[in-house]
């Protein structure tokens, strides 16, 4: 078995495991293990994971606390704090695990049992990177040309121009890469 496929298997098992255990202590132990495995990158991994889930989890946690306060649940047996601790630890564990997987694994190698899947994913990924850069440029160009906050109509026009550009580029890319595929004999072997 090659390395990346083993990583994928371990990752999926880890994800399943992290959703089957419910004791905060074990979830915390899992998080510690993931951080230990990530070695020198642990601090930046944890920081990125916290930033990623911060908005959503803060919203959920505060709403939950608000609801518990409203229902006067703090004095009753399953403490709302315990629920929130478990929830946030689990989310953090899973997010760190995913970031570690992304950093250590070449997904394309892990999926190379299917030629078609790796091909589609690779092509889509490279095109996506090009598109994200272009998307940044569209956004920044409008900012660069605007002396005041752009009006609604200008922002509509800018979004429409970007969308048309992406549609046209993807149609062209599809045509070009199918020609390239044919010339490389992809469909005959």
């Amino acid at each position: 078995m090659q390395r990346d496929r083993i990583h994928l298997g371990l990752y999926l098992a880890g994800v399943l495991g992290a959703t089957l255990i419910h004791a905060p202590a074990w979830l915390a132990a899992g998080l510690a293990l993931v951080l230990l495995l990530s070695g020198r990158d642990a601090a930046s991994l944890l920081r990125r994971a916290v930033l990623t889930v911060l908005a959503f989890n803060t919203l959920i946690s505060l709403s939950y606390l608000g609801m518990a306060w409203w229902q006067d649940a703090f004095t009753q047996a399953p403490s709302p704090w315990l629920t929130l601790l478990r929830l946030n630890l689990r989310v953090l564990l899973l997010t760190c695990l995913t970031f570690l997987f992304i950093a250590r694994t070449n997904l394309f190698q892990a999926l190379d049992f299917s030629k078609s899947l790796t091909y589609v994913l690779g092509l889509a990924y490279s095109q996506t990177l090009t598109f994200s850069r272009a998307h940044d440029d569209f956004r920044l160009a409008l900012a660069s040309r605007s002396l005041t906050r752009p009006s609604l109509i200008d922002r509509y026009r800018a979004s429409a121009a970007a969308i048309s550009w992406f549609i046209e580029k993807s149609l062209h890319a599809a045509t070009q890469s199918s020609q390239a595929l044919r010339s490389r004999g992809f469909f005959h072997d």
């Binding site: 589609v120 092509l123 889509a124 090009t130 149609l171 890319a173 599809a174 890469s177 199918s178």
Partner: peptide, 11 residues
């Protein structure tokens, strides 16, 4: 199929 699917995905 494949290039087209990739293009749709990126889009």
């Amino acid at each position: 199929t494949l290039p087209f699917l990739a293009a749709c995905t990126a889009l």
